[in-house]
Design a protein around this nucleic acid. Structure first.
Lengths: 189, 189
DNA sequence: GAAATGACTAGAAAACCATTACGGTCATCT
DNA sequence: AGATGACCGTAATGGTTTTCTAGTCATTTC
């Protein structure tokens, strides 16, 4: 396998496991079985490497979400399926969990920036999808960016904050059903 | 004026201006024109004093919000008015802004706890109001606690986080109109 | 003598500093 | 020519000292 790919995989593993701050370039090099200097022939610096990885994960997520959207299904059905997909994605990819945790705990500039980037990407992705349905006349003419933002932030709040004040965490289905019942419900014509 | 009241006002002033951590008991005593020991004859400790003040502000806010709710108006109208009132309240009371900022920056246990308390109080207040309208048959049978939670967290996200990634902050009216158009819109029968 | 006070104390936080660790470079090696 | 790891300067860490402050209590005040 090519060295660039090896490095990317090693770095993904380490960032997911230990976070950005606690991952050293030496460690990545060791896992990837390359010299530290080799990493720098492919990536300008640690930050750029991190960004590339995050970008890949985002792309993968978009693809997964897009895959479940069926032409023949209604907006509500598709929204439900896509949302479910993204929720389950979050569970599997520890990287996102790590990023969120690290942003709160250490305030590493690179991490803060990347988290903003991720949010930006997700919001604009959701916005795009909603806009499509607005143009198709299936959804009311709302401010799609605000809707997307509310969906993301609401979701994050339910997943990250809810259990700080409540005994039982919400299941993915409860969250999705609730969004279905309120926000999505208000959008259809 | 009685000493207890003087202390409360001095402490409110200082907490609002400098936050919990940066306010010293000596400073409160000086502003209130009492000896430091006197504070402890009225309040067990700094934390209790802080809690009492926060509780007072919450109570005041509830009263203000309740005041604008009119028996003869519709759910949507009342929701809109109450929300507007709470938004404007937030602007005027720097204390809340300080608490949120301090929670993020310093993680003072007392502040984290108080912020959770405030959120709890606001959510249960909103929930109560929604439940009333559900019982009156004006609102669909939704999970009112989730709605209340989403309203609060969504609102906080729009106010605190939106301008981190966007040039122009959202006006109170934009936020309220948006909630009106989506969440509240989905609730009415 | 009941209430108020501020000097005092213990423990927590900040400032300081010595040491380590790490990101990034580059002379050397394969 | 491409890979490498010893090396460098800087940033993070952690141990130590100093400062600060919440809370107490002996003394004062009215």
């Amino acid at each position: 396998m090519d060295r660039r790919q090896e490095i990317l995989e090693a770095a993904t593993k380490s960032f997911s496991l230990f976070g950005f701050k606690a991952t050293t370039m030496e460690q990545i090099a060791k896992i990837a079985n390359v010299g530290k200097g080799t990493i720098y022939t492919f990536f300008d610096n640690k930050e750029v490497l991190f960004q590339e990885i995050v970008l890949r994960v985002i792309t993968e997520m978009k693809q997964e979400a897009t895959k479940v959207i069926k032409k023949e299904a209604s907006f509500q059905e598709n929204a439900y399926a896509a949302l479910m997909k993204m929720l389950e994605f979050r569970d599997t990819h520890q990287l996102f969990a790590k990023i969120i945790a690290e942003e709160q705990e250490w305030r590493t500039p690179a991490v803060i920036q990347v988290k903003a980037q991720i949010e930006q990407a997700i919001v604009s992705f959701i916005k795009q999808k909603i806009d499509k349905y607005i143009n198709a006349g299936e959804v009311r003419q709302v401010n799609s960016e605000l809707v997307a933002y509310l969906l993301l932030k609401g979701y994050l709040a339910f997943v990250n904050d809810w259990n700080l004040t409540h005994e039982k965490p919400l299941t993915e289905k409860e969250i999705t059903d609730f969004f279905q019942d309120t926000i999505f419900h208000s959008l259809i014509l």
